[in-house]
Design a protein around this nucleic acid. Sequence first.
DNA 1: CTGTTAGCGCATTCAC
DNA 2: GTGAATGCGCTAACAG
Lengths: 339, 339
Amino acid sequence: MKKGQVTIRDIALKLDISISTVSRALRNSPEIKLETRKKVLRTAEEMNYSPNVVAQSLRVNKTKTLGIVVPELASHFFAANISGIQDTAYKRGYNVMICQSNENYEQEKSDIRTLISSRVDGLLISLSRETKQYEHLTNLYEKEIPFVLFDRIYEELPVTTVTVNDTQGAYQATKHLIGQGCKRIAFMSGPEGLYICKKRLDGYEKALREVGIEVDPQLIAHSDLTERSNRSLTEDLLKLKSRPDAIFALNDPVAVDVMKVLKEKGIKIPGEMALVGFTNMPFSDALDPSLTTVDQPAYEMGKLAANNLLDQLIDPEGFQPRTIVLETELVMRKSSQKK
Amino acid sequence: MKKGQVTIRDIALKLDISISTVSRALRNSPEIKLETRKKVLRTAEEMNYSPNVVAQSLRVNKTKTLGIVVPELASHFFAANISGIQDTAYKRGYNVMICQSNENYEQEKSDIRTLISSRVDGLLISLSRETKQYEHLTNLYEKEIPFVLFDRIYEELPVTTVTVNDTQGAYQATKHLIGQGCKRIAFMSGPEGLYICKKRLDGYEKALREVGIEVDPQLIAHSDLTERSNRSLTEDLLKLKSRPDAIFALNDPVAVDVMKVLKEKGIKIPGEMALVGFTNMPFSDALDPSLTTVDQPAYEMGKLAANNLLDQLIDPEGFQPRTIVLETELVMRKSSQKK
DNA sequence: CTGTTAGCGCATTCAC
DNA sequence: GTGAATGCGCTAACAG
């Protein structure tokens, strides 16, 4: 921040009028003579005036910035979320401040603390995979700091949440595999506590039960989502006496790791093993075979989350928490089509 | 931002001491009695005090936040850059405020204006592909607002820049293709004005000249980087009487589009057409054939850019602009190996 | 070691 | 329609 920045005081001095007049003129207050306003606007322009948002924020007790906490930035899904949030916020005159928890609970708490100190007007949060306690969220709630949860949510609080219909998506995927004639469908999941894992497991089980296939715990793997873990669990699945004929992966990155192992072992996809992912990340269509997956509208999620938070900020009284669930869509490609 | 936030005044009142003592205790000023400090810290904790960074910023004329302007958030390369910046900033006590220009010059200008209004202490900027004028940058420079350019840079200003050695990377890639026996190597580039396009073209040409291959303008395509453009230009290359036997793509996303067209046409990769990308994005190794590419250390770039900006902020006198060029590394995979 | 005072830049009463 | 005065929460002289 430069010291030399011009202030409304400088403008007032130059025009020999009062600070308050300048302030009013700049804010297009109706009580200012058109002439004066024009004069002020012009000299502001000339002097290259740029309002000090920090001072404004202190004065009006609002920063017009949203805080974002995501597990990770360099994941396409979250990047797309943030992109949606940022575009929306910008359009409505808000800035965004971003923190990543790096999937770490302590970091997540610290991020929230930092953003609160920065007095963001509201928060958009997607939980880390380590997060199993939620005092930091109840705390926010009690302090009446507006926040919205998205994707990796916590359900026990009356706040707005935005997710995709994870259960439905997993159901569609599993149903599709069944339709392809698969009998032993494995689910390569993530950490058991994670919201999306639970929901997707529900959908997976529902689809199986519906056609009378018993859920076999051996076919459900809980990866910690590292490539190492994804790979070794895939190998474990392959070692089963009664090997699966399909794998439904928690998300596309996991599916990619599974695919790599299958290819290395010379297992034909989808012939010997059908494969379905979740997310529809870019380039999932460029894999070979192209990856069947459940499309998750990440940008749209970010947009919705931001718009709902902003609505709440603008009209706190009229606010009612919403549970927004976006529908998913199965994108059928080659990795699962046996016919 | 909640009205109910406790201030140092509240703490002072409760402890019946002065505001400044509280302030000093909180900041671990050495002139405060240990006992008082402890007392203050404890009640601050009890009262759930969170310092008002806005007020601090106004007072000290520093916000401890960095502004970031990137063309796009949902691109892995920039997301990884930002991740590096964010981690680094956070470690050194800074926040980041992020804007995306969406590859639009006007938006880029507007983003910078917004961040300046927010009084960020410094900026990290990667230019949009539309940016062909640079007054907004010279303007920043004249105002003495510290900023660093990365990846998509402008060279005519004495500011710190961080890039990879684009020329060298392109040279390595082309050299490698030549080594594989390719005789007619096409370069699928992007907008001519873009820094990285110019630099990579240099490397490409250098490698060709070195072995006495004449640069054929027909083999150099300038895509606008949309899938549509990438595809149609690929098709154009295939229609040439003297068809290329290799394509070096500006980056991995372009390479993916090229690969799709080649596969659709049944052209063997690398047999009939070798292919090399640039970036080493995630999953470029999961493509089939796996993509030979030039690795670009995006996270590292962000880290370096942030650290250099922060150094400049902390010691403005001792500051000298640096031109930081990271070395690239050719990652040889299947899409280019004929032997 | 601690308290008093001033002021960062701005929006907003309250006067006139 | 405009100006003077006040204070947002905090830090930093200046006193003692």
